[in-house]
Design a protein around this nucleic acid. Structure first.
Lengths: 342, 342
DNA sequence: TTTTTCATTGTCAGCGCTGACATGATTAGA
DNA sequence: TCTAATCATGTCAGCGCTGACAATGAAAAA
């Protein structure tokens, strides 16, 4: 293998291909870019020459000339490796389909300011667009910076300022209402929420939706106990700690807990067990996301399914598909998945 | 927000900065690239001008001129979203540190040939180097293609042809030996392996290490039952199915199971319970990776810890750090983490 | 003082590609 | 038949940057 440095073998250029095919570089460019108005015969000749030389577009040159990078950027916050992997899956699939590449930047919640990470990192990658997931999709300073730079972005599940950009979301509210009804019908009356980080606007919306739905059923929204997790290395561990704190401080134990996501829910389950309570008899638990670990724990976790990969796919499509932008916002369906914890 | 297209606001160029600072573009370039031999006064003037204009390097232009893209590519196979997230974390951190960006390409085990995915995807991104994880790091056809293109790569945990490239690995063998000893000392005598995909060479090496260690202790390597998972949507589910098959077919039930990774181990636990056996009394279970779910299941999973993020960090460092390549291969430590399943 | 050295800065071509525009070859329309 | 429209292809500048080399001037050595 070769150390990094000037390419070992000089790759073929448009001119090389053009020389072999006996045409101008521009015509080869037309073929490569699938432009119309190239005769079938010429096209075939050029395609043969491309095969012969193993020609690949030089993205740098193309970017420079066309002022496009064919790169789509995203921040990947550390809230759930499942969520992360799914977002990646959907986005990568769409990128492949539309001829883009994905540039991913890590974003450590506690440590960094997203704007700094953008200024010092992703901005330098000169992406054509950004895909923003919670919580960065609600960071106003970041959005201001992007608007300032004229960098297009699509937000996934924004909690606030829905009109500020094109966005892709899941119908979380409806599933939350179903969940509340499900819990209520199961006889649960004392509720607690193990909430996500305060800057995760979509989660805040979920919390409100939960309380509203409860009120609609005749419950007492004000009586819902709430503990917010403190981010640390493991979000499940954060959920366990928050749950223990909540269960210790609260006067009467809740009989149902709604967690920020499945990992937090699983942490909550551990905390509940530590206090000698059983699930679901004493306390029901529900998560969010329907990640695959939801099925692996015991009892299997009741949760809300949302099409995470598809969300990301649609987000990329909106920026990468020439038709996309006119389409406007997208709302995908969610569903309540009842399993053993409720 | 803006639709994709020609940049809305024209970003500042080297020439803009140079004009303001009253120097040549080349001198600005020197400052940007931290070259020596620029006087302190000039440097300061230029840095002020850079701040004033909000100048950012245009990577496309830089790449074109310097024949480097400052991009590092990687394939992300779907074996474990935990493994994936950790690899990403380490690689992203290193990229940030060394001024590179990460281009990630999805790779769906069952469906694609890696070489095709390289030819049609990553190759077009013109990365400066690739980071390869199992199982693609052992795909000879891919390595041949990379060598042909003169594209440098670092392999993480290669199972075969260790000398073929610079590589970063974990000392898996040693931890496997510790595990076997631990199981043996616990009185276990009938072993089974729920193995990973056949093209995952590192896992194959682990299997052999397991059998060898068993032989060294006086056990019967030939008596180890083996079931290989069939990849499907959920690797845990694949583990559950493989385990059920194995337990049904085998004459006498094993009293210890070593799984390809933690997710497979958790699937195995589910399968064992379905057959009405208890863990660890009837059957001990051990995983691999020490992912965070290992602590979340009940009983908590005994597993082998490997520094996945660090592996990826070192891999990127090898290609991105000018000093890196001379360093040669790297072997990181692993450790046995004994929990409740053994 | 004169020559040499070397740190600092500048000049310029060209990386590979595409957009704007020009040209030549066909075909359709009058 | 002649003109206009359309298609197929070519020409060329220049995107923003860096590498190779040149020039400048001040300090060091002779």
């Amino acid at each position: 293998m070769n150390p990094i440095g000037p390419a070992v073998k000089k790759p073929a250029t448009l001119d090389d291909v053009a020389a072999i095919a006996g045409v101008s570089a521009k015509t080869v460019s037309r073929v490569v870019n699938r432009n119309a108005n190239v005769s079938a015969a010429t096209r075939e000749r050029i395609e043969a020459a491309i095969r012969e030389t193993g020609y690949r577009v030089n993205q740098a040159a193309r970017s420079l000339a066309a002022s496009r990078s064919f790169l789509i950027g995203a921040f990947m916050p550390h809230l759930s490796s499942f969520y992360f992997a799914e977002i990646f899956r959907g986005a990568a699939k769409a990128c492949r389909q539309y001829g883009y590449h994905l540039v991913l930047e890590e974003f450590d919640h506690g440590a960094d300011s997203v704007v700094d990470r953008y200024e010092q990192g992703l901005r330098g990658a000169h992406c054509d667009a950004l895909i923003l997931t919670p919580p960065v999709c609600d960071d106003e300073k970041l959005l201001d910076a992007l608007d300032r730079d004229g960098l297009p972005y699509v937000r996934i599940a924004p909690g606030e300022q829905l009109g500020r950009s094109v966005a892709v979301g899941a119908d979380e509210r409806r599933a939350v209402e179903q969940l509340v009804t499900h819990l209520w019908d199961g006889g649960r009356r004392r509720f607690a929420i193990i909430a996500g980080p305060a800057d995760h606007a979509a989660a805040m919306v979920r919390e409100r939706a939960f309380c509203n739905a409860l009120g609609a059923l005749g419950g007492d929204p004000a009586g819902v106990a709430l503990a917010r997790i403190e981010l640390n290395e493991s979000i499940a561990e954060a959920g366990r700690i928050a749950t223990l704190d909540l269960l210790r401080d609260v006067g009467q134990l809740p009989d149902a807990i709604f967690a920020f996501n499945d990992e937090v829910a699983i942490g909550a389950m551990a905390g509940i067990r530590e206090l000698g309570r059983s699930i679901p008899e004493d306390i029901a638990v529900a998560g969010f996301d329907d990640s695959y670990i939801a099925q692996l724990v015991w009892p299997p976790l009741t949760t809300i399914h949302q099409p995470i990969a598809d969300l990301a796919f649609q987000a990329v499509r909106l920026v990468a598909d020439p038709e996309g932008f006119s389409t406007g916002n997208i709302l995908l369906p969610t569903s309540l998945v009842v399993r053993g914890t409720t």
